Computed example of a mutant assay.
Amino acid sequence: MRADRKLWMTATICAVVAAGVTGCSQGEDKAAADPFKGLTAEAIADKAVATTKAATAFRMTGTGTTDGEEMTVDFSVDAKGTCKGSMKAAKGGTAEVIGTGDTSYMKGNEAFWRSSGGEEGASAGETDAMSNALKGRWLAMPAGADGDTAAFCDLKAIVKDMDEDTPRKGMTRGDDADVDGKAAATLVKKGDKGETTTFYVARDAAKPYILRVVETGGKEPGTMTLGDFDKPVTVTAPPAGETVDMEQLMKTLTAS
């Protein structure tokens, strides 16, 4: 079963939400001294990536398409391995994810589990068995049991992907903008396949976080918004009676 391979990539390939990015910042922000004066766009991007990587927690939200399917993602994670979030596909598949450090839990509706089974090449009988076994219950996954799902609650893995997947070479700086009330510098990267990636970086000399990433054109247009930096994530593990572990699930599938 595959929930998603890379949460960071899931977020960044979501569809553009243009309403969240307005033109230029207003009032005092507009008149404020430029904290990036004298820096190239690439240098600003490097500072933004380094600052965001150093955060002890953050929230990622995005809406759009991944693997050809529309999806909405809302996910929070901290450095202690605590996480919580949700994803929703246009075809009706929805799932919640929570993690407590040593175990991740996923709870999906029937459409989600049937879609997951189909992607993994499960037979119709196996898919039926999986859907029935997990109906209204959480799938419990010990850390390290599944590299893909374990990465959901691994802040280091997420920021590593962020660093590797952030194209900084050849960036140019555009007009400043406003992202959810925060003044931001815009950094633009033109791709060789018709895509344009725009980074919105907080105009903050001390904490120039990445606030939003927007990609237009190309095969995977999308948007991702970051927030709640350094805000701890609080979750409660589901009761044992509401969970199914991997061993139980595999026995169910083998018997089907």
Rank of each mutant, 00 (worst) to 15 (best):
M1Q: 05
D4L: 04
K6N: 14
W8D: 02
M9A: 09
M9L: 11
T10R: 01
A11L: 03
A11H: 08
A15E: 11
V17A: 14
A18L: 13
A19I: 13
G20A: 14
V21K: 01
G23V: 14
Q26V: 15
E28Y: 10
A33L: 01
D34R: 11
F36W: 03
F36R: 00
A41R: 11
E42D: 10
A43N: 14
I44N: 04
A45R: 00
A50I: 00
A50Y: 05
T52Q: 02
A54Q: 02
A54T: 03
A55N: 07
T56H: 11
T56N: 13
A57K: 01
R59M: 02
R59Q: 09
G62N: 08
T63M: 12
T65E: 14
T66P: 06
T72D: 15
F75V: 05
D78I: 07
G81V: 07
G81W: 03
G81M: 01
C83I: 07
S86E: 09
K88W: 08
K88V: 07
A89N: 08
K91S: 12
G92R: 12
G93P: 05
A95D: 08
E96F: 05
V97C: 12
G99H: 01
G101C: 00
D102T: 15
D102C: 08
D102Q: 06
S104Y: 02
S104R: 02
Y105C: 06
M106A: 06
K107Q: 12
E110K: 15
E110P: 08
W113M: 09
R114W: 03
R114Y: 05
R114D: 09
R114Q: 14
S116M: 13
G117D: 05
G117T: 00
S123A: 11
D128R: 04
S131I: 03
G136P: 02
A140Q: 11
P142D: 03
A145W: 06
D146G: 10
G147L: 01
D148F: 14
T149W: 03
F152I: 02
C153W: 07
A157R: 15
I158C: 03
D163P: 10
D165I: 05
T166S: 07
P167G: 06
P167F: 04
R168D: 04
K169A: 15
G174K: 00
D175I: 09
A177I: 06
A177H: 11
K182N: 01
K182V: 12
A183S: 14
A185C: 03
G191D: 13
K193L: 03
T197V: 14
T197M: 14
D204K: 03
A205Q: 10
A206S: 15
K207A: 09
Y209S: 05
L211A: 00
L211I: 06
V213N: 01
T216S: 11
E220I: 07
E220P: 04
P221L: 10
T223V: 06
T225G: 02
T225R: 00
D228L: 02
D230V: 05
V233I: 00
P238F: 07
P238Y: 00
P239Q: 10
A240L: 09
A240G: 07
A240I: 13
G241V: 12
M246F: 05
L253S: 09
L253G: 14
T254M: 15
T254A: 12
T254Y: 03
A255V: 00
